[in-house]
Design a protein around this nucleic acid. Structure first.
Lengths: 170, 170
DNA sequence: TCAAATTACTTTAAACTTAAAATAATTAAG
DNA sequence: CTTAATTATTTTAAGTTTAAAGTAATTTGA
C-alpha cells in the first residue's frame, strides 16, 4: 500500500529513473557552466573554450606536444585539432614544427606570447570557478570529485569493453 | 605535521584547486559519456544527440511546443532549433504548424512515427545509463544528484547576477 | 490610426564536432 | 629491395554551436 502510494507520488526516489535524472542534471549543469565560461573567455580574452583547452595542455609541456597527443588529451578528434591549431598559430599563440626524424609528425608549442596570455586566462578561469563554488562545502566538493570519478571509471570500463579502447583515467 | 605532509603530497585536498579539478573532471566525464551515447544513438537509431533531446521534449508535450519553448528547454539557441526541427521534419518524426491566431508562432509536434521511434530510443538510452551506473550505490547517485543541483543553482544565481538575466531555476 | 517597439523565428558567418576518406611518411615482410 | 601495412596528419561533408543581424507579425502608445 505504502509502496503504491510512493510510486504514485512521482517515483520519489524508488530508483525508477535515478540514473537518467542524474545524467540529465549533469548534462544541463555542465552545459550551463560551459556556456558562461565560453562567454567570458570570448569577451575577456578572445579565445574559444576548445582553444583554451589546447593552450592549457601545451602550457604543461614546454617542449610542445604532437598533434596526436594533443588530440588525445583534449578529447578532440584528430581532424579537429588541425584547424584549432591552425587558428591559434595565426593568432601567434603557438607554433607548429615538423619533426626532422619523422616528417609525419607535427609538434605544437606555445610562443612566449601564448604562454603569457594563457597564464592570464588561466588565472581568471580559475577564479571564476572558485567564485561559482564559493558557498559549497569543501567536503562536498571532495566527495563530488570522487563520485564523479567513479562514474568516469565506469564509463571507461564499460565503454572500453564495447569499443576496445585503452583505459586512461586522466 | 600531518597537515604539512598532506599538503606536500600533491595538495591532497587542501583546497588548492579543488574547484578547478572538479570542473575538469565533470567536463571530461560528461564528454566521455556523451560521445558514447551519441555513437550508439547514431548506430542504432540514426539520430544525433541534439535531435534526441528535441524528440524527448516533444514527447512529453502531446500538443507540441513552440520553437521558442523548445529552444529554452533544450538549451539550444533559437537559430539552431530551426535547422534541427527542419531535419527532423524531413525524416518524418515531427510536423511544424503555423499558429492561426499568431502567425509568428511555429508549433512542432511529434508524428505517430516520431512518437513510436522515440519510445524505442528512450528505452535503449535509459538502459545504457542504468548499465553504466549499475555498480554505483543508489545513495551515492542520490547525493550526487543533489550536490550537482547545488552547483547548478549556484551557476544560475551567480551567472544571472552578472548577466542581468531573469532567474529561472529550472 | 499608425509608426515604433516587441516578439518569434530565420538566416548568416565563423568555429567546432563527428565520422570517414584521403594523403604522406615510415616501418614491416617477403 | 620493394610492395604492403601502419602511423600521423589533413581533408571533407553533414550537423551543431554561438553570436549577431535580418524578417515578419503583432502590440503598444502617442
Amino acid at each position: 500500500m505504502l509502496n503504491d502510494l510512493e510510486l504514485a507520488a512521482g517515483d520519489v526516489q524508488g530508483d525508477g529513473k535515478m540514473e537518467l535524472r542524474l545524467w540529465l542534471r549533469l548534462l544541463s549543469t555542465t552545459k550551463l557552466i560551459s556556456q558562461e565560461l565560453r562567454r567570458r573567455l570570448r569577451i575577456e580574452f578572445n579565445v574559444t573554450l576548445p582553444q583554451f583547452d589546447v593552450l592549457a595542455q601545451l602550457h604543461r609541456e614546454p617542449e610542445g606536444l604532437r598533434l596526436g597527443d594533443l588530440s588525445q588529451r583534449t578529447m578532440v578528434t584528430n581532424g579537429n585539432i588541425t584547424g584549432l591549431v591552425e587558428r591559434l598559430e595565426t593568432d601567434g599563440l603557438l607554433v607548429r614544427e615538423r619533426l626532422r626524424e619523422d616528417r609525419r609528425v607535427t609538434v605544437a608549442r606555445l610562443t612566449d606570447q601564448g604562454r603569457s596570455e594563457f597564464e592570464h586566462m588561466a588565472h581568471a578561469h580559475e577564479s571564476w570557478l572558485k567564485e561559482l563554488m564559493r558557498d559549497m562545502d569543501p567536503a562536498v566538493l571532495s566527495s563530488l570529485f570522487s563520485h564523479i570519478s567513479e562514474i568516469k571509471t565506469a564509463a571507461l570500463t564499460r565503454f572500453a569493453a564495447t569499443d576496445e579502447l585503452d583505459g586512461a583515467l586522466d
